[in-house]
Structures are given as C-alpha cells and as structure tokens.
Amino acid sequence: MTTNTLDIPGYKAGTWVLDPAHSEVGFSVRHMMISKVRGSFGVKSATLTAPENPLEATLTAQVDATSLDTKDAGRDEHLRSADFFDVATYPTIDFTSTGVRVENGDMFVDGDLTIRDVTKPVTFEVDFGGFGSDPWGNYKAGATAKAVINREDFGLTWNAALETGGVLVGKDVTIELDLQGAHQG
C-alpha cells in the first residue's frame, strides 16, 4: 500500500542542508567472490527542499569521486583511474530525487544516479532517525539509506578472471548512506 501523505512528528518544511562532518557515503562490493571490500566517499553537497507534505520533498546531492577511500592506496588509485570512476574526467557522482514514497510502513526515495556521465534510476530504502536540536540551537535530522546497483550499468566494467573461477570484482555494489542535515529555514 502506497501512502499519499506522511505525518512525521518534528518535521519542519523548508530547506535542509547536509552536514558533511556527520555524514558518509559508503559502499561494499564482492572481492574474489569470497569477501567484501568496503570504501567511502566524501559528500560535496546535498540539499533537501521540504514542502509541507514530506512526500513532495526533493533532494539533490553531489559526491566527491576523487575522495574515494578503501584503506588501500594502490586500489584507490586504480578505482580513480579510467578503468573505473575516471575521476579526472568525472570528478563527481550526482543524485537527484524523483519521488518519495511509503509502502507497507517503509520509506523509499527514488531518483536518478549519475556515475561517469551515465544516469540510471535507483531506489534507496530509508530508515529515518528523527529530529533534534544540537547544543548551539541548530535543528537537525538524521537518516540512513541503502540501495544496490549493478556497477556495469554505469560503465564500471573492468574485471579480471580468476584461475579458480569467477571474477575479481562483483557486479553488485551496495551503497549505504549515513546522513545528517540542518534546517536552514
């Protein structure tokens, strides 16, 4: 069942701006078919425009692809190269929402994700954390979100076959967001 309106206690209409010091974009992908490699990106910007009905909110976000960090300098350099993200040509990853919906009590944000100048629809399942005021009087909101994409859909097709069968890098990438934003009025 899809809901057309949403009542969230503490919700404030207006503009919300991401707090990069309290936000992270993480990812994980299968490595050698037996384990996962995890990494993160820095968020350049994100703005949520929130009308009275939260289901009509819009979000734009930009991730700094050059900030990629998997805790291995050699792997990071390879991921930044033209084999993967080609950050010299495509320094950002962009997201623009196309809708917010609630189904069976779960919240989803649909949108267009752009990596390497390839735009595809993606859906994030959102776990809303709530609202609160910090000691300096800033009104904040927090949420986590998760989506799974096929990296090859975005032109990230490099791989290597393994002698034991399978490939070095899995196709499915799990994106996990930890976000905190401040109400700007």
Rank of each mutant, 00 (worst) to 15 (best):
F41T: 00
S81D: 13
E52A: 13
F108S: 01
T89A: 14
D94K: 00
I8C: 04
D134F: 07
R80P: 05
H78Y: 06
D69N: 03
P121W: 02
D172K: 13
V100T: 03
E52N: 13
G129K: 00
P20Y: 00
D112I: 15
F84D: 08
D110G: 08
V169N: 04
G10A: 06
E125L: 10
P91Q: 03
I93N: 02
G130L: 02
A182T: 15
H22I: 01
N53T: 03
P54Y: 01
V87G: 01
S40V: 10
D72T: 02
N104C: 05
T114E: 13
H78T: 14
K140M: 15
E52F: 13
T60E: 13
P9T: 03
R38V: 08
E176D: 13
K171L: 03
F128G: 06
M32R: 10
D153K: 15
E163Y: 10
R75M: 01
F154Q: 06
G132F: 05
T66F: 10
T60W: 07
T174N: 09
V109F: 01
E24D: 10
E103K: 03
R80A: 02
K36G: 03
L177D: 02
T2C: 05
H31S: 08
L177R: 04
E125F: 08
N104S: 12
S45T: 15
G137L: 00
T89K: 15
M107D: 07
I149E: 15
K140S: 07
A88T: 11
A57R: 01
G142Y: 15
W136K: 09
Q62E: 14
D134R: 15
V43P: 01
V25H: 07
N104Y: 06
K36Q: 09
Q184N: 01
A141Y: 10
D153E: 14
T114C: 03
P54H: 05
S28C: 13
S35L: 10
V25G: 00
V100I: 12
A57I: 11
G74S: 14
D64L: 04
V29K: 02
L59W: 13
F84T: 04
G111K: 00
T49S: 13
E56Y: 12
T89C: 07
F95A: 04
Y139I: 05
A147G: 08
R30G: 12
V29S: 02
T49M: 12
Y139K: 01
W16L: 02
S23Y: 02
A50G: 05
R101W: 04
G132C: 00
W136E: 15
K36S: 07
I115G: 12
D94A: 06
R151H: 11
S67F: 09
T174Q: 12
H31G: 05
L68M: 10
L48E: 01
P91L: 03
M33I: 10
A143G: 06
D110Y: 14
T49R: 09
N104P: 10
R116M: 00
A147I: 07
